[in-house]
Nucleic acid binder design. Structure first.
Lengths: 286, 286
DNA sequence: GTTCCGCATGAATCGATAG
DNA sequence: ACTATCGATTCATGCGGAA
């Protein structure tokens, strides 16, 4: 395995994933990928039709399950397209199939793509969000909330000005919905950072990678920080232009990648070279 | 039918929906509802388990299909819960079943609820979005984009951090997509209003409805503006505290509603009375 | 008016313990 | 082994009265 770390395998994802020399059982900490969508971009990528999609992906996901560490996570970014006025429900079938084959469906994040521009379609508006699924093999997983925490809102400074907390806020208050949920506001008086939530608004920088399905580096970065530690191994079986690798490297993680199109392998390796240069500079500076 | 318009039927949703005196075929312009979620609020509502849910709802949705006008729409707000670390996929089964029984799945809006109740759970963050599905009977539907359009200024401010992204970058972004949108950039700068997108950020939180699951009036309002004209009939078969009725009335539409709990019927009728008072005042003022 | 400040409120889950 | 109950966890927003 060692000699495949921090390298891109050029070839078919399923074939490579099945190779136990490259990917031994329970060897990967995090798998994060945005697979080629069904019926989309067939000019640039070998894709499957909606019907074939679930069946094809099951084989991929079974290998992912095999090579993932017990406490590891599988992050899947996907969005179904609209055809003939209808959303194609293969993403739903896909998720149900993943559950059926043993994955735990932990969460569906909404990736809110704020930089998407308006457009006009009959009977529908611009699609500005994508699904990012979080699956795992077992209940107990690696999960590090601190690195993804965000500054507490401005409301807190007003409310806790001069360290004065009203008596009201010191009391425990219960919701009247009968849920039992309660809150005690002074609990988070001295907090600077708080947990995020499951709608991801990333300040997306335009990617000039020429890869049509590239997500911004902030997306894999967020999950890498949340779900791995330094030197952990992050795999993207549909590497494309290498965004996942960039995110892993710049955060001190190792990457493994598979990509079938030479064009994208070349782009990815160029980007990785650039990233390593930057990292070298940073190390030399210290 | 006439005598049931602008009234709430107290009783079981399915029984009332089956009544052809109340609901003749193809008589409703828009159905918008948030049914009781599975396994939730069982102290306040008779609920279904995840397993029963799809089967139970199919009967409801078949009647909805019968009574909806051909160009009408069906808006469904729902979100599955998490149990034992796993999202319960009954919502997915529900959507697939609706498709199987003849509905066209047109869109899934993301309702981004910034004021969701706080909490901390192992391996997950707080859930701040819900699904809002748009179904229809046929491809050609009533769809009025103008009433929900937003000022371009707001849009640009919201979607872009103008300090960080130059006009040049915006244009480059368009060119990269290769979708022919770049020509329209300059047009947008001059246009006053643009289409919204499929992530709904609503401002209001307040609802003194004493209903544990009320959505803000802005939610039904948005879809009523988008999918109906004045004097059209809007139905909510799970009316709760009457938010859909308020939204219909204040926009010059008619409502029909069903609610099984007397407690909520009373609250809804009180709110509707208040709303009608307000509307009277407004008419007198003219 | 306008700003400021207090405060209500919103579809939750999990582990532990008890029955 | 199964179910029921209980305690613990924690933000952000708009409204309305006060200054």
């Amino acid at each position: 395995m060692e000699k495949y770390i921090n390298k891109i395998q050029k070839g078919d994802a399923l074939k490579k994933l099945k190779n136990r020399n490259i990917f031994p059982d329970e060897s990967i900490d995090l798998i994060i990928t945005s697979p080629p969508y069904a019926d989309k971009r067939s000019d640039q990528y070998p894709t499957k039709t909606s019907k074939e999609y679930v069946h094809w992906f099951r084989k991929i996901s079974k290998q992912c399950h095999r090579i993932l560490k017990p406490k590891g996570s599988f992050i899947l970014n996907i969005k179904e397209h609209v055809k003939d006025y209808q959303r194609q429900p293969y993403t739903y079938n896909l998720v149900l199939d993943l559950i059926r084959t043993g994955w735990l469906w932990r969460e569906e994040y909404c990736w809110y793509k704020k930089t998407a521009f308006p457009g006009s379609w009959p009977g529908r508006f611009r699609d500005t969000w994508e699904r990012v699924y979080h699956f795992s093999k077992q209940k107990d997983i690696e999960f590090f909330r601190e690195p993804v925490q965000v500054p507490i809102g401005d409301w807190a400074k007003k409310r806790f000005n001069n360290d004065q907390v009203s008596n009201h806020d010191k009391k425990r208050h219960f919701s009247n919905t009968g849920s039992g949920l309660s809150r005690q506001v002074d609990n988070w008086q001295n907090k600077e950072y708080v947990d995020p939530h499951n709608v991801l608004e990333l300040v997306s920088v335009t990617n000039n990678t020429n890869h049509s399905a590239a997500f911004p580096v902030e997306l894999p970065e967020w999950f890498i920080k949340l779900l791995t530690e330094e030197n952990d191994i992050v795999l993207d079986p549909f590497m494309g232009s290498g965004t996942t690798a960039i995110a892993a490297l710049s955060n001190g993680r190792k990457y493994m990648g598979i990509e079938i199109e030479s064009k994208y392998v070349d782009i990815a390796e160029e980007r990785i070279k650039e990233e390593n240069k930057k990292l070298d500079v940073r190390i030399t500076d210290r």
